[in-house]
Amino acid sequence: MRAVMTVIGPDRVGIIAGVSALLAEKHVNILDLNQTIMGGIFTMVMLLDTATANCPFEELRAAFADFEHVSGLSVRIQREDTFAAMHRI
């Protein structure tokens, strides 16, 4: 299953490091990554392959909910299909 992860929040050192370390720990592969600073706000969109994950999707989601809480960033992870349905005919 392919999922899209978005990370949005105030820019600082180590955001990508933190996110990718957690993904590596969960054995999730990053397929694509797009990151920029929009009006001073760190904005990153990642395409992930969760098929190789060592835990169920719900657990992965919960891990990032905790990460969101600790880091103060807004983190969303959901199936790629959600966006494809809305923006591709």
Binding site: T36, T43, V45, L47, E80, F83, M86, H87
Partner: peptide, 12 residues
């Protein structure tokens, strides 16, 4: 990959 602005628009 999907367009970033489309993704952010959906999340919004």
């Amino acid at each position: 990959m999907l367009d970033r602005s489309d993704i952010l628009e959906t999340l919004d």
